[in-house]
């Protein structure tokens, strides 16, 4: 009934957009596993997007753009680590401050870049990521979608498997989890709680930077003086909860939201939806609220939950 080519197209774009959520979520999963919430994700992604596209255009190389975004956001995340781990101050306030700072700086820098580097915009086709498109394989119904995406989609999927392995099957992962569950016990066992938390927060920041740069280079390359992340960072924080802090489960959540974000695009071809497009754009946010509620009911019932020390600063005193 429905054209298989259309289905493949839908799945392909779902994977491409879902990867934005996936990368940001994976970083936050690791940070929260160590016990630190970073509400600044949205702001970090805004900075990552700006640095990513500007550096990529200046060097005519998307990968240097990714690296620069990663480095910059890792540095900004250091501030969050310092405030919350070393000074043991309010994680929520610090995260919100980074969100607002990142939003302001990201948009301001982008607007500036637009005025200074306008001719560089012509180079966008040279730096954006294109779907690889494996011949023959990409035409297989449904599965073919997996063979028609850009390389970062594979990186994202690989990362979620690797991070799952690290978190649950290695010594490092055990250390991270124990720091997030019971920092005093971890400390007594000789784990450097502060160092682990620093690394995890900085890793989370670097991933947010990649997610922001990927939003630009893999999805919508442009330089506009307006916010571009548009709540995706916040949804990624919600996705951490949906995935119960598990990188593999994060895959499903991220791709679900990739699809939901595009729902408006596919639904607008149906006549009754056409005049409601602005409302359809809110589908991911509405779904997030519904899913958060279902998750909370489940968590209450099954006593599943966040890492026990999440949000609580650790002090040796």
């Amino acid at each position: 009934m429905v054209d298989p080519i259309l289905i493949n197209k839908f799945l392909t774009s779902t994977l491409i957009v879902g990867t934005i959520y996936l990368i940001a979520t994976l970083g936050e999963v690791v940070a929260e596993r160590s016990g630190v919430v970073n509400l600044g994700l949205e702001g970090l992604m805004e900075i990552g997007a700006t640095i990513g596209i500007i550096v990529a255009l200046l060097t005519v190389n998307p990968w240097i753009g990714f690296l620069a975004a990663m480095g910059t956001c890792a540095l900004v995340a250091c501030i969050h680590a310092f405030v919350t781990v070393t000074l043991r101050l309010n994680q929520f306030a610090s995260g919100l401050a980074i969100y607002i700072l990142g939003l302001g700086l990201g948009v301001m820098l982008r607007e500036y870049a637009r005025s200074v580097y306008a001719p560089l915009l012509l180079k966008i086709p040279e730096v954006r990521l294109y779907p690889i498109g494996v011949p023959i394989l990409k035409d297989i119904p449904i599965i073919g979608a997996l063979f028609n995406v850009n390389i970062m989609v594979y990186v994202g999927i690989a990362l979620s498997i690797i991070l799952w392995f690290i978190l649950f099957k290695t010594r490092i992962g055990l250390n991270i989890r124990s720091v997030g569950e019971n920092p005093a016990a971890a400390d007594a066992a000789g784990i450097n709680v502060f160092r682990v938390r620093y690394y995890c927060v900085i890793f989370g920041g670097a991933m947010a930077g990649i997610a922001g740069a990927y939003l630009m280079l893999g999805h919508t390359p442009q330089i506009m003086g307006a916010p571009i992340v548009l709540g995706r960072g916040w949804i990624a924080i919600a996705l951490v909860i949906f995935s119960f802090w598990n990188p593999i489960r994060a895959l499903f959540g991220a791709f679900l939201f990739g699809g939901l974000e595009l729902a408006y695009y596919w639904l607008q071809s149906i006549a009754i939806f056409r005049s409601y497009v602005p409302l359809l754009i809110a589908i991911p946010h509405i779904t997030a609220i519904i899913l958060l509620t279902i998750m909370s009911i489940e968590a209450l019932r099954k006593r599943l939950g966040a890492p026990a020390a999440l949000g609580i600063p650790y002090s040796r005193e």
């Binding site: 702001g43 405030v83 700072l101 939003l103 607007e111």
Partner: peptide
Amino acid sequence: LRISHFVSVAFEGLIFLFLVLGDF
């Protein structure tokens, strides 16, 4: 100065950050 008015958002973020830090 021909810069985005989002500069005031950046100022607000910085003030917030200093405030959080200051609470130390």
